[in-house]
Computed example of a mutant assay.
Amino acid sequence: MLKITKMMAVAATAAVMLTSCEKYDNELPSIAAIAVAGADFSTLEAAAIQGGVAVTLSNKNAGDPSGNFTVFAPTNAAFARLGLVDAGSLGVLQNSFLTNTLLYHVSNGNLLNSALTTGSTSGSALGGLTRRIITRGADKYINGSKILATDVKASNGTVHVIDKVLLATGTNIVASAQLLSTAKVFKNPELTFLVQAVVTSGLATVLSDPASNFTIYAPTDAAFRAAGFPNVAAVAAAPPAVLQQVLLNHAVGTGRFTSEQTGLTATTAGGGTLTYSAFNNGVFTIKSNGIMTPANMVIPDIQCSNGIVHVIDRVLLP
């Protein structure tokens, strides 16, 4: 679990360095050096090296007149929420996905905390994809990630510390699931059962429509097996109408990050009701009428071009 005292120490160290070197900006550590020096950023450091962005974040930003970057930096605990606990565990990811994910955390110029206002958006270095700023009580979020510390100065920009890794695919919900199912994200495919269910049910067109905007709860392969589907072939052989009813129970109109979910119930696209637990450390559980044990979030807050996907560990049976 994140130790806020360590995080405060990192921010305080940076502040002291800023005070003592305010006339000599090049004596501040670079963004990459802050990651190297901070005990809570060792996984980020390893990811930056593996993803090929460490050198870039060690230097001035040639693509911006200010020469600066802004980086939203996930802590070790943020990576651990995805099962990525050290440099070795990053090997389950494809390098191209890791690089794109890191770029989604980067902006050009200095984007200070004062500019992170509710309802505003922030561009990223990943193909111009944007992130949105959300306030929940006294806390501020970028997408579904809580901002823990702000305005840590570096010689080449600004660092904000966050508690979850930001994820975006740049494509629609169906194509995003297909990326996971064809080992474009994890080297071991995931969501293969879900992709087959979407195809067999005939819902692929609806869920890939750029004009749509859904929150989708996407069951893992293990969740489908636990629900009685031993393999992908069993999903393909299921009646399309049954699969459609089940899948519609996983879709809620309007794409919302976890930080934007305020009610305790929601009506699904199939007319069912989902019940949410209280918001807890950036996530909540989801229960449907057809299951006894609520589903947990495995990977929350994946931004797609037509909605938000939360990967869960149970099938939400109607």
Results as ranks from 00 to 15, higher is better:
residue 125 A to Q: 11
residue 140 K to E: 04
residue 157 G to M: 08
residue 130 T to D: 08
residue 127 G to C: 06
residue 144 G to C: 11
residue 113 N to H: 13
residue 139 D to V: 06
residue 151 D to K: 00
residue 124 S to K: 06
residue 125 A to N: 13
residue 130 T to W: 07
residue 134 I to P: 02
residue 121 T to E: 14
residue 158 T to Q: 00
residue 145 S to M: 04
residue 121 T to K: 01
residue 120 S to T: 12
residue 150 T to K: 00
residue 114 S to I: 08
residue 122 S to L: 13
residue 138 A to K: 11
residue 126 L to P: 08
residue 156 N to Y: 11
residue 130 T to V: 08
residue 152 V to T: 10
residue 121 T to Y: 10
residue 115 A to M: 06
residue 155 S to K: 01
residue 133 I to P: 07
residue 115 A to N: 07
residue 128 G to H: 10
residue 119 G to P: 07
residue 116 L to I: 12
residue 155 S to I: 05
residue 131 R to I: 07
residue 143 N to P: 07
residue 117 T to K: 09
residue 121 T to L: 08
residue 157 G to V: 06
residue 130 T to M: 01
residue 149 A to M: 12
residue 126 L to Y: 15
residue 143 N to L: 09
residue 119 G to D: 03
residue 138 A to S: 15
residue 154 A to I: 05
residue 129 L to G: 08
residue 134 I to L: 09
residue 154 A to C: 00
residue 135 T to E: 12
residue 158 T to D: 03
residue 140 K to C: 08
residue 120 S to I: 01
residue 157 G to Y: 04
residue 129 L to F: 12
residue 153 K to S: 10
residue 131 R to T: 15
residue 118 T to Y: 12
residue 138 A to I: 15
residue 121 T to P: 05
residue 118 T to D: 13
residue 127 G to I: 14
residue 117 T to A: 05
residue 141 Y to L: 00
residue 151 D to R: 00
residue 119 G to A: 07
residue 129 L to K: 05
residue 120 S to Y: 02
residue 149 A to V: 13
residue 153 K to G: 00
residue 146 K to W: 09
residue 120 S to G: 06
residue 133 I to V: 15
residue 131 R to L: 15
residue 125 A to F: 14
residue 151 D to L: 00
residue 141 Y to G: 01
residue 152 V to F: 10
residue 154 A to V: 04
residue 144 G to P: 12
residue 158 T to R: 00
residue 134 I to M: 03
residue 134 I to C: 04
residue 155 S to L: 00
